[in-house]
C-alpha cells in the first residue's frame, strides 16, 4: 500500500468530505478492516441504503412467515433474512414455532429439493440487488427447462440508481460515492455516469480489500466536485458489465415501483417477474406496508445517511444487538450493527 496515500488520508485537513457507500458488503468490510482509524477525522464514511435486508419492508417478512406456516410448503432463504423482524417476529421465531424454513447457500439448491419432494411447494425469499437478480434469472431458466412446478419466488428485488438518485435529491449531503463493486460486475460502471453528471458527484467503483477501499477513498477526495465515474476494480468490473447476465435478467424480470424502508415508494426501483412468468410468483406485488417496532426508531434516516447511527437516540441504549429496534441493528450489514460492534 502506497505510504503517500496512507499519509494523505491520515493527515487530510481540507474541507470535511462525506463519502457514502451503498453496499452492505462495503459496510461490513470497512468495519472488519478497521480502516476508519486510518482516516483523518475530516473524512466521514456514511452508510447508505446498500443493505437489501435493511431496506426490506415488514410486509415482505410477514408474507414470508405466512408462507412458511402453510401446509406442505417450505420457505427457502439466505441466512441474512432469518433474524429480521416483521410485524410479529422473524422467520427464525416462526421456525421455532414449527414453520418450515430452509437456509441455503444458493437459490439453485432449491431445484434439488423440489425434485426430491414433489409434494412440497418451495417458495424462495428472493431478495437482492443487481448482483443477485441474475442468479434468480438462472433459477427461472432451470425451472422452465426442467419443467418444475413446485418452486415459486417471493421477490424483493431492487436496483441501485433510483435510490442513489433519491438520496442525492432528498438529502444532498454527500460529496462522493463508493460505488458497489459486485453490483457493478453485472451492470457495468456506466450505470453511475448519469447520476455523476446530474449531481456533479464522483463515483469510484471499489473492491473489498482494505487497500482497495483506501485507494478508492483517496480517489474520491481527489475527484471532489467532478461528475465522473472511476473504476478501481478492473479485475472484474468493466464499463458495460456482464451483458449475458443483463440479458437473462431482462428476459424474466421487468422494473416496477418498490417500497424501501424509510423512503417510501421509489418509481422503477424494483424488479418483478414478467407477466408471462407470474405463475411462478408467490405474491410479490403490493408488499408496501412497513411496521415500525419503536416510534423513536430512526432507521429510515440512518439508512439514507441523513443521520449517523450515533445520532439516533436509541443507538446503544434501547437499541442494541440483543434487542434491536430496527433493521439497521438486526442485519450484520446494517450501519448500526457495524457501528456498535466494531467501533
Amino acid at each position: 500500500m502506497d505510504s503517500e496515500i496512507l499519509r494523505f488520508l491520515k493527515e487530510y485537513d481540507g474541507d470535511v468530505i462525506r463519502i457514502m457507500e451503498v453496499c452492505g458488503t462495503h459496510t461490513a468490510e470497512i468495519s472488519r478492516t478497521g480502516i476508519r482509524k486510518m482516516l483523518s477525522p475530516k473524512i466521514k464514511l456514511i452508510s447508505g441504503p446498500g443493505c437489501p435486508v435493511c431496506v426490506t419492508v415488514t410486509a415482505y417478512i410477514d408474507a414470508c412467515i405466512e408462507i412458511a406456516k402453510r401446509e406442505n410448503t417450505t420457505l427457502v432463504s439466505f441466512g441474512d433474512m432469518l433474524r429480521v423482524p416483521g410485524s410479529h417476529g422473524s422467520l427464525r421465531d416462526a421456525q421455532a414455532e414449527g414453520a418450515s424454513v430452509k437456509m441455503v447457500y444458493s437459490p439453485l439448491d432449491t431445484l434439488k429439493y423440489a425434485k426430491e419432494h414433489p409434494e412440497t411447494m418451495y417458495v424462495f425469499a428472493a431478495v437482492g440487488f443487481e448482483t443477485t437478480t441474475p442468479v434468480y434469472a438462472l433459477l427461472m431458466e432451470q425451472i422452465l427447462a426442467q419443467q418444475i412446478t413446485n418452486i415459486k419466488l417471493l421477490t424483493s428485488l431492487k436496483v441501485m440508481p433510483p435510490v442513489i438518485d433519491w438520496v442525492c435529491a432528498n438529502q444532498g449531503n454527500v460529496d462522493g460515492f463508493l460505488a458497489p463493486g459486485h453490483v457493478s460486475v453485472i451492470t457495468g460502471s456506466r450505470i453511475f455516469a448519469p447520476l455523476a453528471e446530474k449531481f456533479h458527484l464522483p463515483f469510484v467503483v471499489s473492491g473489498f480489500e482494505g487497500e482497495e477501499l483506501l485507494s478508492s477513498i483517496y480517489a474520491l477526495i481527489k475527484l471532489r466536485g467532478q461528475g465522473t465515474v472511476m473504476n478501481l476494480y478492473p479485475s472484474v468490473v468493466s464499463e458495460e458489465g456482464n451483458t449475458l447476465a443483463q440479458a437473462q435478467v431482462e428476459k424474466y424480470f421487468t422494473p416496477g415501483d418498490a417500497t424501501w424502508r424509510g423512503m417510501g415508494s421509489i418509481p422503477d426501483s424494483g424488479m418483478y417477474l414478467r407477466e408471462t412468468y407470474q405463475k411462478y410468483d408467490a405474491g410479490s406485488l403490493n408488499l408496501i406496508e412497513d411496521h415500525v417496532l419503536n416510534r423513536a426508531c430512526r432507521c429510515a434516516e440512518v439508512l439514507t445517511g441523513k443521520i449517523t447511527s450515533e445520532e439516533c437516540p436509541l443507538f446503544g441504549t434501547a437499541c442494541t444487538t440483543e434487542h434491536p429496534q430496527g433493521a439497521c441493528m438486526v442485519s450484520m450489514e446494517g450501519a448500526c450493527f457495524n457501528h456498535l460492534t466494531a467501533r
Binding site: 447457500y105 437459490p107 448482483t131 442468479v135 478492473p234 479485475s235
Partner: peptide
C-alpha cells in the same frame, strides 16, 4: 472466477 450465491458472475482478469 467470481462466484456469488452459487453462480459464476464474472471471470477474474489477472491484473
Amino acid at each position: 472466477v467470481l462466484v456469488h450465491a452459487g453462480v459464476i458472475i464474472q471471470k477474474v482478469t489477472k491484473q
